[in-house]
Computed example of a mutant assay.
Amino acid sequence: MTAGGGDPRPARSRARLMEAATALLRSGGPSAVTIDAVTRHANVARATLYRHFPSSNDLVAAAFMSLIPPAPMPPPDGTLRERLIAVVGGWADAIAEAPTLLTAMAWLSLGPDIAEVPTAGGAVGSLRERIAEQYSAPFDAIFDSPDAPEHLGRVDRTTAFALLIGPLVFGRISTLSEFDYRATAIAAVDGFLAVSARSSGSAGA
């Protein structure tokens, strides 16, 4: 029993299942995260797994979310450029230092395994929604700020995310040995601001 009188065994079994699922996800992608493989690696009974995760979809979704660090939020103060650089720079650090983040992003956006995962229970859709909400939060905070319309006009946020983060993802998947993530983050922000200013007619304002 724990100090609070609760049974610690469910927490331990869930932790073992999550450790096994994330290891399989890293090494083999979502198709490797099967009920049999996870229970075998975790040495946990199938019935115990189903008490924690109603389906394999829920297990895959939980494993993905555990691998993805929180998105960097912008500072409350500073110019629009400074706040964007803080967010995109935070992304640069995450992409450079955490390969699992890129793995998750690549699978969600491009991976063929998405078609192989059953959609019963809506776990895949829920996963996409949760990640979309998580990663849109820092950009929403900036684009919804009072000074954003003056400098940016109306922003297509999906396109903005691609323009600001896409170069960093390219650097991670490329074979360039000395890719400068920080310099690229700043260049991406400045390019995005220049294009947005021209589109909104605020260039030189």
Rank of each mutant, 00 (worst) to 15 (best):
M18S: 15
P54C: 14
G204P: 07
R154I: 12
P75R: 15
L84G: 00
D77M: 11
N43I: 08
A123V: 04
F64Q: 12
T79Y: 07
V38I: 02
P99M: 04
T159M: 13
P118Q: 05
V88C: 14
P75M: 12
T34P: 04
S202C: 07
R81L: 05
G89C: 01
R172H: 14
G121R: 08
R14K: 15
I131C: 03
E97R: 14
A45L: 12
S136L: 10
S136C: 01
W107H: 13
A21Y: 01
D156A: 06
A194V: 00
T39F: 04
Y135T: 06
G171E: 06
G204R: 09
E19T: 15
P30E: 01
R172D: 03
G201L: 07
S200D: 11
L80I: 02
L59A: 13
T159S: 11
P112A: 06
I85L: 14
Y50G: 08
V117G: 01
L80M: 05
L168D: 07
D190H: 03
H151R: 14
A23Q: 11
L168H: 06
P146F: 10
S66V: 00
F179N: 03
A104I: 13
A47M: 10
L59V: 04
F179R: 01
A197T: 04
T100C: 12
A148M: 01
R130D: 03
N57D: 15
S174W: 03
L25C: 08
A47D: 13
M18H: 10
L176W: 05
P30S: 14
F170E: 09
N57W: 00
G121H: 06
E116S: 10
A94R: 13
S55F: 00
M18G: 15
W107D: 12
A94M: 15
V155C: 06
A185Q: 04
T48L: 02
E133M: 09
